[in-house]
Structure formats: C-alpha cells, structure tokens
C-alpha cells in the first residue's frame, strides 16, 4: 500500500479579525496566505525549514509578550493574530531600516516596495552607520558571492548543508555584526568543498549570490528581466530527469533554476544541470 498522509485536523484562527481555517501544523504565515494577507518575508524559503532570522514577517499574537515570526510559529486553535498592527508595522519598519542601512538591498525583490510601504528610512542612522560593504568575491566562472548584499538569512548554508546538498562548503563564521558566510578559513570556493550545484544561489533572497552570467550582465547593464522568458524542460545529462527552468534572453540561456515543487528536484540541481548548458 502507498502510505497516506494522516488526515490533518483543521483549526480555526483569527487573522486581523477574520476567521481562517487551516490544517493543524500550519504556520501563521500559511494562515495569513490563506486569508490573503501579504506578509513580507526574506529569510523564509519554501523548500527550507524556517530559520526566522530576518524578522520582517513578525506579527502580533494576542497575549504574547513579544512579536512572533509568522514564517515559523505554528498556528494554534483560537490564536488571534494581527498582521498589520501598529506594533508589528513599527517592528517591520525598523527591521527594514536596519537591513537597508547595513546591506545593499538593490537586487532584493520587493525591498524598495516594502521600504516605501512601511515608511522605512534607512538613511536615518547617518553616514557613519556600519555596513557590510565589501568587494564581491569572484573566484570562479559560475557564480559570484557579493556579501555586501548578504542579510545572513542562513538559507544558502541550509541548502548547502543537511537540508539539501549535504556538501557543507559554507557555514556562518564569526559572531554578531561581524558574522559572515564563509568557507573554512575563508578559502576561495575553488579551494573549498563547493561542488557548484548552485542550490545556494537558487535560495538566496537578495542577489548576494548570483550566477556569473547575471552578475556580468548586470555590470554591463544588459540584464533585463522584462525581456526574459522562462521555460521549464528536462535536463539533458543523466537519467534522473531533473526539471530545469531556462531563463532566456535574446535566444540565450542566462540563468537556470528549478521548480521548487517538483517531485524530482524539489528545486535542486547539480553542476551539470545548473551550468552545463553552454554547449547549445
């Protein structure tokens, strides 16, 4: 027999005063999405265990001392959640300011939109505010690590580590504001355990990790997502049958991703599938 998922009990929660019914085990974020609420997220990844590090998704749960991260906190029966309360908005605003003042969010999708929506002013900390600015690490021909854009969300580490790739080429090193994503002894990727699967790039929410093609095209000013098509097809290498989404601009493949809900890949690829398209 094929084991069936045990039926999940449904629970009722209130999101901004609106009753929503979600399966037990759902997160507050799931419930918010079910209620049609747009809660911002950065470190949340649909293929990863929530790390709830960025805290932009915080919501107010009635009776709780602190705000709760929607992405990881489980919804409980009878829970009353405010996604748009003054306190939650204020926290999101300051978190966006803290991120915007320390990190280059220029390639983070929706960052500008949220900054405007919450009235965040990253400039308020002055010109001397510490940042993570640093030169991009370009140490191989496949992908680039521009840690000036890194919000330390841990997604790349989790994708490289035990959640998917199990290669463990990178980890968080150091502590506090000085913490960085690093190989051992900050060795270049070419001298690390990296196998260039690009699964870290796939999950990076800010563009800190990007394919060399995209990085170069952005530098040249030729990167134009409005001119790109996305077509999902099957990898041409081994017989596993990984689904590739080809991002094509001017009849050239400029980026390869994989659908996150695909039963074969779950959004992951290997070096050949991700980068081995050069021959066409």
């Amino acid at each position: 027999m094929i084991p069936l998922q045990p039926p999940r009990r449904l629970i009722d929660v209130q999101i901004d005063g609106e009753a929503v019914r979600v399966p037990e085990g759902s997160t507050i974020l799931d419930a918010c999405q079910a209620a049609g609420k747009d809660v911002p997220t950065l470190c949340y990844g649909d293929t990863l265990t929530p790390k709830n590090a960025c805290r932009v998704c915080v919501v107010e749960v009635e009776g709780a001392r602190t705000l709760a991260p929607a992405c990881s906190r489980k919804a409980e029966a009878g829970m009353k959640v405010g996604t748009d309360t003054e306190r939650a908005r204020q926290s999101r605003k300051v978190v966006l300011e803290l991120l915007g003042s320390s990190t280059d969010l220029s390639t983070t999708p929706r960052a500008a939109e949220w900054t405007a929506e919450y009235g965040a002013d990253p400039e308020r900390f002055g010109d001397d505010a510490a940042t993570v600015a640093q030169p991009a690490k370009v140490d191989n021909d496949l992908y680039v690590r521009d840690y000036a854009k890194c919000i330390l969300c841990y997604k790349c580490v989790d994708a490289c580590g035990e959640q998917w790739q199990n290669t463990f080429a990178i980890a968080v090193a150091g502590r506090g504001f000085d913490a960085t994503i690093s190989t051992e002894f900050d060795a270049p990727l070419t001298d690390s355990a990296c196998v260039y699967c690009g699964n870290c790039v796939e999950v990076c929410p800010t563009g800190a990790l990007s394919f060399k093609t995209e990085f170069d095209m952005r530098a040249e000013g030729t990167w134009d997502e409005s001119k790109q098509t996305e077509t999902t097809t099957i990898c041409s290498y081994c017989g596993v049958g990984c689904n590739l989404t080809l991002h094509v601009q001017d009849n050239k493949i400029v980026k390869v991703t994989s659908p996150h809900d695909n039963p074969v890949t779950k959004g992951n690829l290997c070096v050949k599938g991700r980068f081995g398209y050069g021959y066409v």
């Binding site: 191989n140 021909d141 496949l142 990727l189 070419t190 260039y196 070096v271 980068f275 081995g276």
Partner: peptide, 11 residues
C-alpha cells in the same frame, strides 16, 4: 565530454 566541456567547471 561533448556536452559538459561547454562550461567552465572549477572542479
């Protein structure tokens, strides 16, 4: 190697 020679694998 006909296909895979088309990209610059650091490995």
């Amino acid at each position: 190697g006909v296909q895979s020679s088309g990209f610059a694998s650091p490995l």
